[in-house]
């Protein structure tokens, strides 16, 4: 079959390129040089680029934070979450309400927003994580809709119009109100998210998620509390979303239920799956694709989602590990 041959050739080419990259980056000097150069470039970028570029890059960093949070749930713990926008909404609205209605300082609202997300995560996760895995997908979907409809119908959340007048954060006496401020803020958040994800992955907790994903029964027989482990992933992932939501609210100063639709949950999921679930560089790559493609060619507008959906299908059928390849196993070393 010629088709399969071509397919294999394409996959092999991608793999060999990235595996070569892996080899290069196995060298610590190269790795740190590259990371340092990339960081330096991103730090000076706002001085070199237009407002528009900064806006897109800020959006990209924001996506990285949110998607790494979702990745903990979907990629690390293997739980399909279809209502992630709801947790993002919980964060955004907690900050929004506390800031615009009670005049609380932005930084003080963050612990509340995390707390709210943890509560919501526990409320949804605790009863449902012991159910069949695919029921969770529906429960989270239902929860996402409930949250959006509730926000829409309540007075305190400003109904369909939403909230306005959310205060700008003040840091070292400077009010953060320029796009470059938010660029740096989300840049730092993204770095933090990568750091936390990386440490979690390489730990007792991260391994426990992997065991459960591989074989739930065997994991339980080895003494891993499956429900608690999953609950941890669920709550930690939800908190990522909530923090991102808080900063989102501060950046926009106005939020409405329209920012937290099912489609947003799907876009986050798309970024995680396209790049490669459970792999940090994969998720970042997924975010780049999901954020940048529509910006690069503006005229695909209405076809954007269709294109992503087709990509998603193709990825699932031919390359379920995502665009980013799995680490070659031979090079496993200390």
């Amino acid at each position: 079959m010629a088709e399969t041959k071509i397919k294999r050739k394409v996959t092999d080419t991608i793999d060999s390129v990235i595996i070569t990259l892996f080899r290069i980056f196995d060298n610590k000097v190269y790795r740190y040089t590259f990371l340092f150069a990339a960081a330096a470039f991103l730090i000076v970028l706002p001085n070199l680029s237009s407002r528009f570029t900064q806006e897109i890059m800020t959006n990209l960093f924001f996506y990285v934070v949110v998607c790494l949070g979702l990745n903990i749930i979907v990629g690390y713990a293997g739980l399909l979450h279809l209502g992630y926008a709801a947790f993002f909404a919980v964060g955004a609205y907690t900050t929004g309400i506390l800031s615009s209605r009670m005049g609380m300082d932005f930084w003080l609202t963050i612990p509340f927003s995390v707390f709210a997300a943890v509560l919501a995560g526990l409320a949804i996760g605790f009863p449902t994580l012991r159910l069949r895995g695919d029921y969770l997908a529906i429960v989270t979907l239902g929860f996402g809709e409930i949250t959006r409809l509730t926000i829409r119908n309540l007075d305190i959340t400003g109904g369909a119009v939403g909230l306005i007048g959310i205060q700008r954060p003040v840091l070292f006496g400077i009010t953060l109100n320029q796009i470059s401020h938010f660029y740096y803020m989300f840049f730092i958040l993204a770095i933090l998210a990568i750091f936390v994800s990386y440490r979690l992955h390489d730990s007792r907790m991260g391994r426990s998620w992997e065991y459960i994903r591989e074989d739930e029964d065997a994991a339980a027989a080895m003494g891993i509390n499956v429900t608690t482990s999953r609950l941890y992933a669920f709550v930690i992932g939800s908190s990522f979303g909530a923090v991102a939501g808080s900063f989102f609210a501060a950046k926009m100063t106005a939020i409405s239920p329209d920012s937290f639709m099912f489609i947003h949950s799907v876009m986050f999921l798309m970024a995680v799956v396209l790049g490669g679930m459970g792999k940090i560089p994969g998720v970042v790559l997924g975010c780049i694709i999901v954020v940048l493609i529509p910006e690069i060619s503006r005229d695909i507008g209405q076809y954007r989602l269709l294109i992503f959906a087709v990509m998603l299908l193709i990825i699932m059928l031919y390359r379920p590990q995502g665009i980013w390849p799995d680490r070659p196993t031979i090079s496993a070393k200390e």
Binding site: F195, V196, R199, L200, S203, R204, M205, R207, S208, E210, Y211, E214, D215, D217, A218, A219, A221, M222, G223, I224, Y232, I236, T329, A332
Partner: peptide, 29 residues
């Protein structure tokens, strides 16, 4: 056999130590 097939042998065995250890979120990060 119910091994974690996609993980290394050492990682497989490390799963057994899970219930004898207790590092949580904050200490991990």
């Amino acid at each position: 056999l119910r091994l974690f097939k996609e993980m290394t042998v050492l990682e497989n065995v490390m799963s057994g130590m899970h219930c004898r250890t207790n590092a949580a979120f904050l200490t991990t990060v």
